[in-house]
Design a protein around this nucleic acid. Structure first.
Length: 103
DNA sequence: TATTTGACCAAGA
DNA sequence: ATCTTGGCCAAAT
């Protein structure tokens, strides 16, 4: 299985109402390639099956979605709100919504 | 095979 | 608080 597919599998494990950071996701993959994880997302061959909108930056910002345009960011933000996540000033409470893979 | 790039992260100024 | 720099790993060229 390629690195990307592992990212997708792991990302699909993330429950609704929770989010993960690129770093945490990479850590769960037993690696530190958080940047490569982002690449895997933009490739996104599995489209809506993989909740790439649940993946955000470690600083609490949304990161990117289809592009780095604010408009698309709004869309991602809206999806997260639909999950029950509250965003404050385009920032998310990591300690509250960050999902941990290992336990 | 080597260099560059990227939906990033952490630290320094 | 924001901006810049260096570093990380994998994929693209």
């Amino acid at each position: 299985m390629n690195f990307k597919e592992k990212c997708y599998q792991l990302l699909k494990k993330v429950p609704k109402g929770k989010i993960v950071t690129y770093k945490s996701l990479a850590e769960a993959l037993n690696t530190g390639a958080y940047r490569a994880v982002g690449m895997a997302m933009k490739s996104n061959p599995h489209a809506p099956k993989v909740p790439c909108h649940r993946v955000i930056c470690s600083n609490g910002s949304l990161g990117g979605y289809t592009s780095n345009n604010r408009i698309n960011i709004q869309k991602k933000l809206n999806l997260l709100k639909a999950e029950g996540i509250e965003i404050k000033n385009n920032k998310i409470d990591l300690g509250k919504y960050l999902y941990k893979f290992k336990e």
